[in-house]
């Protein structure tokens, strides 16, 4: 206890000594404007990072998911196949299923059942339709080893078994969507870089204003032997603290927006959907917060948590550089 009291006393005196060097940083760098502006920057950065993360997830999903699947349409699926079979005659769809199962790299071959077909067509034709025309069989070929090497050869082989069979090469549009998602990802990262750049300029201007406001005490303690590192460190610690507070506030402000965005994007990505409102209402605040956070993709949660430390680091580095450059004007 005595040691703790001694430590408290030491740190109190140490802080008092640091405050009493005449720099009066609370006046040089006021504690309202900078955190407010950094908070606004942090919200923008969080939104841009959300965009970047979302685009990255979509890119990965579209590129790998679509590339690893072929969709095959077999018209008139129940007609007998044109191919010669050693035993009982096969239908066209069964023959295509068998051929696909033998395809090198095939992980799973799945023919959509009626319910799945109805769900697929529902957006265009509505539900509960009883079609007079025979629908083609839709078969999904899931590949274990990425895109098939020669989709054209496969299409020709299937056409020989069941003429008129179409092979949709998902890899092509998947790759296009992947490139689009990559572009969006790059744009989002560029937006983050621009926001960071604006933050640097803002902190630089604020620091310069602070230096101008405290020129006399800085010159005095410099003349008494204060090093550039000491003066720059005092300013940088203050700016880092203010930027951290701003970054933290911005992250908290951005959180509801990000949860909402994740909820909207959930069907297209791997994030969990928003929990039902009844379950939310029944939970206590900690569980509710946990449920909401679960809807965010882990990389986004990580970047969100890194926002305040990143703001502090940008503030510290920018102020160090600005103050040291300014001090170079002194002998």
């Amino acid at each position: 206890m005595a040691e703790r009291a001694h430590q408290t006393g030491f740190f109190t005196r140490w802080n008092q000594a640091r405050r009493a060097d005449g720099l009066a940083l609370r006046r040089a760098l006021p504690d309202r404007l900078l955190p407010l502006l950094v908070a606004a920057m942090a919200v923008l950065a969080a939104l841009a990072l959300a965009g970047a993360t979302g685009a990255q997830i979509l890119s990965a999903r579209w590129s790998s998911g679509a590339a690893a699947m072929l969709t095959v349409q077999v018209p008139d699926p129940d007609a007998p196949t044109a191919a010669k079979t050693p035993t009982t005659p096969l239908t066209r769809s069964d023959a295509v299923l068998a051929a696909l199962a033998d395809t090198p790299g095939a992980a799973r071959v799945h023919r959509l059942d009626k319910a799945e077909l109805d769900a697929l067509l529902a957006p265009w034709l509505g539900r509960d339709n009883d079609f007079a025309l025979t629908l083609p069989a839709i078969i999904e070929l899931h590949l274990a080893t990425g895109p098939i090497e020669d989709a054209g050869a496969l299409a020709r082989r299937l056409a020989a078994i069941a003429p008129g069979t179409l092979v949709e090469r998902n890899a092509e549009w998947g790759a296009r969507l992947g490139r689009l998602a990559d572009s969006l990802h790059s744009c989002a990262l560029l937006a983050v870089a621009i926001v960071a750049g604006i933050a640097v300029v803002l902190i630089m201007a604020t620091t310069r204003a602070g230096l101008a406001a405290r020129r006399m005490p800085i010159e005095l303690i410099h003349a008494m032997g204060a090093t550039d590192g000491y003066i720059a460190g005092r300013f940088a610690r203050r700016t880092a603290l203010l930027a951290f507070i701003g970054g933290l506030a911005g992250s908290v402000l951005a959180l509801p927006l990000l949860v909402l965005l994740s909820h909207v994007a959930a069907p297209f990505a791997t994030a969990a959907p928003l929990p039902p409102s009844a379950a939310m209402a029944a939970a206590d605040w900690a569980t509710r917060a946990h449920m909401l956070l679960d809807t965010l993709p882990p990389p986004l949660v990580a970047t969100l948590l890194a926002l305040a430390p990143a703001a502090a680091l940008i503030g510290w580095l920018t102020t160090q550089a600005t103050v040291r450059a300014w001090l170079r004007t002194l002998p």
Binding site: R13, A17, A20, M216, I221
Partner: peptide
């Protein structure tokens, strides 16, 4: 320094030398 008390003005050189506060 107009916003520092007399005590702290005089203490400046010692504090810049990081002398113990006592």
């Amino acid at each position: 320094l107009p916003d520092l008390p007399v005590f702290d003005n005089i203490a400046l050189p010692l504090r810049l030398q990081r002398r113990p506060e006592d």
